[in-house]
Design a protein around this nucleic acid. Sequence first.
DNA 1: ACGTAGAATGCAATCGATTGCGATTTTTGT
DNA 2: ACAAAAATCGCAATCGATTGCATTCTACGT
Lengths: 339, 339
Amino acid sequence: MNDGTKPARIKNIAELARMAGVSAGTVSRALADKSLVNKETRERIQALAREHGFRPNQMARRLRTQQTGVIGVVIPLGHERRQHISDPFFMTLFGYLADELTESGHDLMLSRVIPGDDEWLDRIVDSGMLDGALVIGQSNQTEAIERVAQYYKPLVVWGSHREGQVQCTVGVDNAAGGRLAAKRLLERGARRLAFFGDTKGPEIADRLAGAEQALATAPGATLRAFPTHLASDEMASQIAAHLDEIGEAVDGIVCASDIIAMTTIRLLHERGIAVPDRVAVTGFDDLPLSQRMVPQLTTVRQDIAAGARAMVDALRRRLAGEDAPSIVMQPELVLRESA
Amino acid sequence: MNDGTKPARIKNIAELARMAGVSAGTVSRALADKSLVNKETRERIQALAREHGFRPNQMARRLRTQQTGVIGVVIPLGHERRQHISDPFFMTLFGYLADELTESGHDLMLSRVIPGDDEWLDRIVDSGMLDGALVIGQSNQTEAIERVAQYYKPLVVWGSHREGQVQCTVGVDNAAGGRLAAKRLLERGARRLAFFGDTKGPEIADRLAGAEQALATAPGATLRAFPTHLASDEMASQIAAHLDEIGEAVDGIVCASDIIAMTTIRLLHERGIAVPDRVAVTGFDDLPLSQRMVPQLTTVRQDIAAGARAMVDALRRRLAGEDAPSIVMQPELVLRESA
DNA sequence: ACGTAGAATGCAATCGATTGCGATTTTTGT
DNA sequence: ACAAAAATCGCAATCGATTGCATTCTACGT
């Protein structure tokens, strides 16, 4: 700004080397601060680089060193095309993952998946741009993931763990979570339950299965499942339709996510149906917003921060060549006002 | 699976070339599906590649072609270190950006910024890994961004536009938004206003300034600003402290974000203070959740999807060498229940 | 049968940084 | 003062794909 001689832009190490009167190799070593090169020249070169704002080309460095420092975060959109990525749960998990990964010096590349393609994950992990990959949610792509997991080690998946599975998953016991929610409703005296959620992916399917198991303890109780999307616009109208169909016939609703629960409560409120007095509602996830709403949400807590830590930890181990096993976390019922 | 001869893993184009009995160059062209190579050999090579699951190394391709197909999305954490990234507004914007960018065939790399460093943005844009960069929020880093914008063209920033600024920004007119919110409260009859928000970044500062301007139209009205963080944990206790300090002395609150508004309403509810009857509250952003809460939030709408589109559009123009100007969108007051 | 347009492929340079190894200089030991 | 050890530094190969240019081969016209 204050001196007219703006330093010429340097485009590569060779050029800097010429300016400094040394070889490219020396510059490379100097910039890496290796003790192999003389302290004085090292500092001189570093100063020169700083002065000209030179930074070595990462692409070349990565090609040569064969490691990228980049972790891929992949969100499969098997069903529900749009807006999935805006889902607060994924976003929150993603945020924590970003925190953890940047902390350990990794960059982070986001990929959404083009549905209808069979080799999406292969393409991502074989691209040679990634040191490892994190898959957020299995959607309906469990087999595709399983296939890749057989040959690609540094891969960790958020989702349900099935017996005999090769892929390393981190997630809560969704069935247990479903049981907790339904049990709570039954204990409050509800007998005619509904389940709102899309069971095409294994995770939500497990939650429904858990809720059904809980019924066994309460003779005469019933449960009916209503497919409900996560994409926010359709969700509201779908839920409205469900509520109309249900009428007075339900006194407890197990929702597959906090967002569904939130919308359900709002729609019940519009219809003048008191929550939890006439109908009790449970959520799933325990997002931050669930304690900020009115009424506060009774929900099944997944510890997202802990989950993110576990995923990154497992990935780190796998990057180091160890063999990290799957982790199944136990969900926890958080009692608040809605049920 | 059904045949024991698992195809050997191919690691580069040269190897595939040897197998196919052609040169590396031909393989490269065949994989790129160039008509320059004979249709038969082309298909033979493609089939061979598919069979062995070979995919060319992106790092090498990018080094050679000098373009990465990757757009950096940068979130500066000038103040408020932790959890900023989990802020729903940023996350929502980020989600839309991801949608837009993947749609146009770009990958997307996320970087959070190490505060206290002066050259964070230089490091990112000079790394040679990015075709362009999107900065989400200026925080208190406006000067650093401005400096980089002077030499790095493919850069678009979400935030406030100032006169004479080089950086290309996309954002709403925050002052106008602040005016809208305050005006609404005043029209409802409120006279003693409060503003909840952290004015260290230019965006929130503009909102406060706008609210103050609106006071001029209402003689005798007052406004007091209370610094309020966005990071969710401290926010609640800060707001609680503000409410205690305020007591009965306030009848309208302009909140700098929907999240702040949501928490404020919840805390007012706990204290038995009716919203909007005793105290009216406005939000800012119009996040999806603001229409899902009880009471629904009266808020200043930023069209996040349109903003994301505008950012990507400006970036695309800049990548093509054109000179896209800043965009200031007009905010819109959404009347619902809270004010 | 011969020259030549045109199609198909090979050759080798290139992108920019890293690094093993050898060459040169400086320092140390006696 | 001389040999040996240590400190510096340069050379050149390497990572893997792309691409301009040269070369070979085929086919066609006359």
